[in-house]
């Protein structure tokens, strides 16, 4: 029972153990991700929202599921530790003459918590559909009210450079041989069979309509001619996530400047 005393929940000891545990677990996951069966489970998590994967596919990958559950449990303990730490700082710290330091310290930790929170929300809210290979004239219909019609695939370079070998692709698809600007896919984004936006999508230049994106990953060339890999994503937290991320980095920079001023003295 003593563990649940507020001062213990806010202790740096708990922070240290949590960080050490999560670091070890992430490294273990990174190593396991090289094993084909584990990698397949993780690919499933990338193809759709994690919450959806948990209901649809997780039981087929028990090791990945077990790894994810432990990671989430440790992250939850760290989040509780962070909240308790912030609370005890607000309640106890003597702020006299150190207001800027105090608020900056608080901001940094709050923003870190918010980043983790929005990361978590991105895994459960919105829509994320698997990559789909499409040809000109196809309609991409994922399990959603959003879908996309492919009007044209425009590829101006030699399609032989679309080598399936990843290592060789880096050598062949140089800026000289592959134009990211001139090669595009003309698509229409539709919601319940109504066109809401039409545009050309390029690699690193998706069609954006509010929170919804139609993303082009790349082109493929095979026996059935030229095709493209696209997906539809509805990510309501992207802009909030990026804003918090920038604020977090700025708060760290401000903290560093304060520390440097102290060093100079």
């Amino acid at each position: 029972m003593r563990l649940w005393r507020p001062d213990r929940l806010a202790s740096l000891d708990l922070t240290g153990w949590c960080l050490a545990g999560i670091i070890g677990w992430l490294i273990l996951g990174a190593q396991a991700a090289e094993i084909p069966s584990f990698k397949a489970g993780m690919s499933g998590m990338n193809a759709t929202l994690v919450i959806r994967w948990l209901f649809m596919d997780a039981l087929h990958h028990p090791w990945v599921l077990a790894w994810l559950v432990v990671l989430l449990m440790m992250s939850t303990v760290l989040a509780i530790n962070l909240a308790a730490c912030i609370w005890s700082r607000v309640a106890k710290t003597n702020r006299e003459g150190r207001m800027l330091r105090f608020w900056l310290f608080l901001c940094m930790h709050l923003l870190f918590g918010l980043i983790m929170g929005t990361h978590g929300l991105e895994m459960v809210l919105g829509e994320k559909h698997p990559w789909q290979t499409v040809h000109a004239g196809d309609v991409y219909r994922p399990d959603s009210r959003w879908h996309a019609t492919v009007h044209e695939i425009n590829f101006v370079n030699d399609p032989e450079i679309l080598n399936p070998d990843r290592g060789k692709r880096r050598q062949s698809m140089t800026r000289k041989h592959f134009s990211a600007q001139a090669n595009f896919v003309r698509v229409s984004l539709m919601h319940s069979d109504r066109v809401v936006k039409s545009d050309d999508i390029r690699i690193m230049d998706p069609l954006v309509h509010g929170n919804v994106q139609v993303v082009l990953r790349g082109f493929e060339y095979g026996a059935d001619g030229l095709s493209a890999r696209i997906r539809i994503v509805n990510a309501p937290f992207h802009s909030i996530f990026f804003t918090i991320y920038i604020l977090f980095i700025l708060s760290l920079i401000a903290w560093l400047l304060l520390c440097l001023l102290r060093l100079e003295r």
């Binding site: 202790s11 240290g16 960080l19 999560i22 670091i23 992430l26 990174a30 690193m204 994503v233």
Partner: peptide, 29 residues
């Protein structure tokens, strides 16, 4: 490029571990 802010891959997991590893000495017990 991928419509996502996080990927469950070896590189992303290592990057997260690196950031926490850098934070560890600043939050040492």
């Amino acid at each position: 490029g991928y419509g996502d802010t996080w990927h469950w891959t070896s590189n992303f997991l290592k990057s997260a571990a690196i950031f926490l590893l850098l934070m560890f000495p600043l939050h040492a017990p």
